[in-house]
Computed example of a mutant assay.
Amino acid sequence: MSLPNGEPGDRPTGVAYEQAVAARSAGGGQATPYDPLKLCVYATVALLAWVFGAWAVLGFAALGFAGYWRARRAGLTRSKCYLRDTRLVLAYLGLIALAAVAAIVLPHVSR
């Protein structure tokens, strides 16, 4: 299937594709290769969460919440996060923090 301008109808989308298109148009036609830095960051965060458990999850959730709180107060209402609306992102990070607190506290609560 083709679009009216002759481009394929099932063209790729997403952040990596958009970055490549932006780099190609900014660099005079020369596209720089996509750097999968985010994947390295995700693996590092997963490793820290695995090693430090709920404490790492709580720390990252609190750090993310503080960052989005500050950005929202500065006027950011739409995020590049999948949830888009910063209120939803704050709620999501708050729930993660509460789950981490529960995972830390519940084993120490006597029955």
Rank of each mutant, 00 (worst) to 15 (best):
P33N: 03
S25R: 14
T13F: 12
L83W: 03
R72M: 08
A22R: 09
L106H: 06
D85F: 06
G6T: 11
F60A: 03
V41I: 13
S79T: 15
A102Y: 15
D85Q: 14
G14T: 08
V41R: 06
L39R: 04
S79I: 05
A62L: 15
N5Y: 10
R73A: 15
A100I: 03
A62V: 15
L76C: 13
L3H: 07
P8D: 07
R78A: 07
A100C: 11
D35Q: 13
A22Y: 02
A71F: 04
R111Q: 04
W69Y: 11
A99L: 07
G53T: 04
G28A: 10
S79G: 03
L98M: 12
L48M: 04
Q30E: 01
L88F: 06
R111C: 00
D35C: 10
G14Y: 13
A22T: 10
Q30M: 00
T13R: 14
V41F: 09
Q19P: 00
F52N: 10
L93K: 01
Y82H: 15
T86Y: 14
H108N: 13
L93V: 10
A31I: 06
G28P: 03
A66L: 13
H108K: 08
L106T: 15
S25K: 13
V57A: 15
V101Q: 05
V45T: 12
D35L: 12
C40F: 08
Y68W: 12
L39P: 01
G67A: 07
D10P: 08
A61L: 00
A49T: 12
D85S: 03
G6W: 06
A71N: 14
Q19S: 07
G75W: 04
F60I: 10
A16C: 08
T32S: 09
P33Q: 02
M1K: 02
A49H: 09
G6L: 14
D85H: 13
E18R: 00
A46V: 08
G27W: 02
D85E: 14
P33K: 09
L90K: 00
S79P: 02
G9W: 10
V89L: 09
L93Y: 07
D10C: 12
W50T: 15
G28D: 08
G59Y: 06
Y82A: 14
R72D: 02
A56Q: 10
A16N: 15
A43N: 09
A54T: 05
L39K: 15
R70Y: 02
L98Q: 02
W50M: 07
L47M: 11
L83A: 14
Y17C: 02
V15S: 03
A99G: 06
G28V: 05
W50E: 05
H108E: 09
T32V: 12
A61Q: 04
T13V: 07
A74T: 00
P107M: 03
Q30V: 12
A22M: 08
T77A: 00
G64M: 08
A31D: 01
Y68D: 04
G53E: 04
T32C: 04
G28H: 11
A61E: 05
R24H: 08
F60M: 02
C81K: 05
L47Y: 11
Y82G: 02
V89E: 01
